[in-house]
Design a protein around this nucleic acid. Sequence first.
DNA 1: TTGTAAGCGTTATCAA
DNA 2: TTGATAACGCTTACAA
Lengths: 329, 329
Amino acid sequence: MKFNIKDVARKAGVSISTVSRVINNSKPVKPKTKDKVLDAIEELGYRPNAIARSLKIKHTQSIGIMTPDIANQFYPEVVRGIEDVANMYEYTIFLCNTDLNEEKELQYFAELEEKQIDGLIFMGNHVSEELRNEMISSDIPVVLIGGKAADLPSVTINNEKAAKEAVEFLLNRGHHRVGVITGKMKDPMMGQARLKGYRRAMEEKGMQVQEELIVEGGYRYKSGYEGAKTLMALPEPPTAVFVCSDEMAIGASRAILEDGFKIPEDVAIMGFDNVDISGKVYPSLSTIGQPMYEMGAIAMRLLTKILQHESIGASDVVLDYEVIEREST
Amino acid sequence: MKFNIKDVARKAGVSISTVSRVINNSKPVKPKTKDKVLDAIEELGYRPNAIARSLKIKHTQSIGIMTPDIANQFYPEVVRGIEDVANMYEYTIFLCNTDLNEEKELQYFAELEEKQIDGLIFMGNHVSEELRNEMISSDIPVVLIGGKAADLPSVTINNEKAAKEAVEFLLNRGHHRVGVITGKMKDPMMGQARLKGYRRAMEEKGMQVQEELIVEGGYRYKSGYEGAKTLMALPEPPTAVFVCSDEMAIGASRAILEDGFKIPEDVAIMGFDNVDISGKVYPSLSTIGQPMYEMGAIAMRLLTKILQHESIGASDVVLDYEVIEREST
DNA sequence: TTGTAAGCGTTATCAA
DNA sequence: TTGATAACGCTTACAA
């Protein structure tokens, strides 16, 4: 029940080359013979074998996406952005979940390389030296989302500046004690850069940063919840807290509400990301809006340009964020 | 910088066949020559070409996933379940977003078939006759998640029964006017089956179902929001509403809160799905828990069994759901 | 405008 | 235990 180009050639009474030519529209073919071929294809229900084709032409129209965890609120939206433009340019995507685990990243990379992907979009908190070497030496074009590494194009936002604006927003509302629940501190962007933004905002306003108001979070809801609990248990709890991801911010809100405080009257919350749900929860979350879909779409667009050897302007594109005011502040 | 099996054969001073043998461990090879080969591989940084391999062996260790929209709360979790077991069995996954669009489904299917996927996991509200024909005639093994079609294995929950229990739960709490915001009525599972469960629960309790209390929703937040607005605008609004998806339920909660009602004092809300966020919002959502991760994992496991020609017990597996009581009821 | 044939990088059969 | 060689299904010179 599975036919190949030879079968249709035989059926149409032509050679396999002309069949190939009509399939790919690569060379002129006399209308009449073209019809014969098309009929044969139709009749047999023939589908070309892309694997065989790829072997010959040396590209697969497949690209890889490595994401920490598709089940994490942040990524589905960017993956969707990637997929939409990938589809537009006729690429199909391999999806891999790395759990931020270097071993897994390396292993997936090897697998994808063997499968001859044309390019890769990588998300993760940082690319290890070993992985970077693999990437460079493979000469598979890679574009990073949300992170940076030497010689690898990337799309990001300015995390430090965004974080700084977030806490300035809080400060301008008259808050004096603003706490922060950070990301993982080994994460250069979500952890370090955003905390740095916090510090700079405080310093520029001439406020002393109190280390007790800084608690290290992680990525998920639970760490936000716990971070807020410790913050609110302080002798003098903050009146506002900047939480470095929306998911943690939702956890923090929960903890704060449970402790009998009102949001935003007693304590204001500022998140980061603008994950889909953040505008839908109650109270809705003020946050820094990252253009997730666009990040994906732009990264993929960048990749297609590289693949087509179009000149790319800057290969580090930094996108705009926005501060979004909702009910939690 | 890219080497093939010939290069390593030359470097190791052996034939390509023995290289192949050491790579695949397919035949005994003298330890000493094996070492030579391994060294050559190491030195060149050789990576086998899976495309060439697939062409020869006629399978790709790739499977497809078709999902309506990865950015929709429900799917990332099941995709994660799929990916985890796929990875375990050394499959890598192609991810496709169909937007529930038949054209796109058909087109993706053709694309994936050309790319010679070994199997497919399909999510969608229903498989069209044409798509089903393609699936059957392609002899690519397909397993459905959340839907059914003749001759296609599936993993589902009993939507009607689950919905019935959801509204019984509400009824048992003494509610007499319970409204329902349905899914899209052309969706057999999320729409029809769940509504049927509602009707049956009402009937079995000897309650007359009032058509004004039934409003058709869709999939997303907005339709839940709007559905609740119309319900609460009724002369005699419901005291409880069963909303056929959590995302809509969150929208409904919002609308109800905005209208000045209290949850659950004035109106109780029951969702469906137990999407990650539903336990994290405030008030947290009572809901029917679908085992999303497991659905994915089990579907993929089923697929691997089919691919390995293991005997599969039932090819329609229906999983348990649970009714989860939280703050909204 | 069409056909013949080589070659893409593997695996596997067959012989040695 | 190893090596030659024919496939796998396609594209693309090159020739006709």
